[in-house]
Design a protein around this nucleic acid. Sequence first.
DNA 1: CTCTAATTGAGAAAGTTTCTCAATTGTATA
DNA 2: TATACAATTGAGAAACTTTCTCAATTAGAG
Lengths: 146, 146
Amino acid sequence: MGKLFSISNYNEIKEFFHKKGLKCTPQRQAVLKVLQESKSYLSINKIHKNVKELLPETGLATVYRSLETLVELNLVVKVHLEDGCHSYAIAPEGHRHPIVCTDCNSVIEYTECPMEDLSKQISEQTGVQINTHFLQLFGKCKECQA
Amino acid sequence: MGKLFSISNYNEIKEFFHKKGLKCTPQRQAVLKVLQESKSYLSINKIHKNVKELLPETGLATVYRSLETLVELNLVVKVHLEDGCHSYAIAPEGHRHPIVCTDCNSVIEYTECPMEDLSKQISEQTGVQINTHFLQLFGKCKECQA
DNA sequence: CTCTAATTGAGAAAGTTTCTCAATTGTATA
DNA sequence: TATACAATTGAGAAACTTTCTCAATTAGAG
C-alpha cells in the first residue's frame, strides 16, 4: 500500500523506515500523523482512539509496536508526566525541552538548553561523564495565569 | 507498637506522620528505612522484597500505599528511569538532582541547580510561569569509565 | 506479478496498580 | 494502664497496562 495520508515529509519518513529495513505501513504512518497533528502529549489510549479514526481496524498492540519503532527512529519521544504516566509526542526538531502547563496540559517548546555548560561543570566536579539528560518543566501558561 | 527500627531521626519522622493525622506504623517505617539505607533507586518489587526481610507479613498493596504516603510527605521521591519504569528513592535534603550511572545504576546527587536563573529567563521569553521542574542526568560514573 | 520477510489483528498471557473488606493496631483520652 | 475509635493492614479480587503468540496479510524487492 502506498501513501495513505498527507504527511508533509512523506518521502523523508519513508526513507527513515527503509534505511533500517522497516516497512512504511499505514499503521505506522497513522500513529505518526496523529502525533504530528497534536500539539500536546498523547497517551497510548488517546493515540489508539485517534488512529482508529483513520484506520478503524488498527489493534492496540500495533500502536504499542509502532510507538516503540518510532521512538527508536527518534521520530517520537516518550515523556513522563507528573503523575508517573507515560505519554508520547512528536520528537521536536533539534534539542528542545517541553514546558507542560499543569492547568490546560498544552505544551510549549523551549529551545534553549542549559545543559551544554552544565555538563562540563558536572564532569569537573563529580567525575561523571554526562551522556543524556531529561528535563521537563511544569508551570502555568500565559492564558491560564488569568 | 513502638519504635521498630533504628531510624536515625525517628521522632522527627513520627511528627511528620502525626501532623497529618497519620499513624507511624512499622510498615511505613520499614519502607522508609529500606530507602534510607539504599544508595540507589529501588523498584516497587525490590522495596517489597527488602521490606519483607524486616516485616515478613507485609503485603504488596501496603508497599504501594506507604510509598504514596511518603511521597505526599515529601520524604520520598518517585523517579522515572530511561526505560519508562518507575522507581523510588529517599528524598534528598534540599534541592538536588540525581545523576544515574547507566552502567552500574548507582546514583550521584548533584547539588547545584541551574533552574533558578533559567526560570526567570523562560518567564521573560515565553510568558510561562515555571513552578516545578524535573531534571535527571544520565551518564557514566568514574568507576565505570575504566 | 511473484516471492519473501516484516507486520498486523486478535486474543491470551503476563505484569502492574488499585480496590474491597474484615481484622488488626496505633494513639488519644480517660 | 485500659478503652474506644479511626486509620491501617493483608489477602485476594478486579482493573488496567503491556507484552507475547501465531496464523493471516501485506509492503517492497526483483
